[in-house]
Amino acid sequence: MKLQTVVPPDRGSLSVVYSCPACGYEMAMLTNAYETQVVQSLGVRIGPATDGVAAEAGGKCPFPGMIPSSEGTGGHRADQPIAVKWTAAAEARLTNIPEFVRPMAKIGIEKFARDRGSLEVDEKILDDAKQFFGM
């Protein structure tokens, strides 16, 4: 099944719609807004731990060739900052930042890298940032 769309909350309920790329059969996961929000507000993950299971399951998907890449075709828009890549080690460190503030922190670090002429965030850039801010 392929993620088809996520319907924005309608009267508080979120709909996550999946479809079969072959026959178009659709299936939706509907959330109870209040239960989901209250539990999520505890800052916990919902659902069983995957521990790599998802990656394995991905390999067994019968439709891998039919699902277009979510990466897009690239291309840089003038009104957007140039994309910065993260090395695996730097990305692993990024997960130490609380999830809520992670996107904002990531933007700041990428700007720090760009300002120094680098389009890649590696552990050295992170260490340089620490040093720069006297941490």
Binding site: R93, L94, T95, N96, I97, P98, V101, A105, G108, I109, F112, L126, A129, K130, F133, G134, M135
Partner: peptide, 18 residues
């Protein structure tokens, strides 16, 4: 203001005053 939250190997470094 504008100090970054920089992740270390286990924890996030704390911004510091002068």
């Amino acid at each position: 203001q504008g100090a970054l939250f920089v992740p270390g190997s286990h924890k996030v470094s704390l911004p510091r005053t002068s």
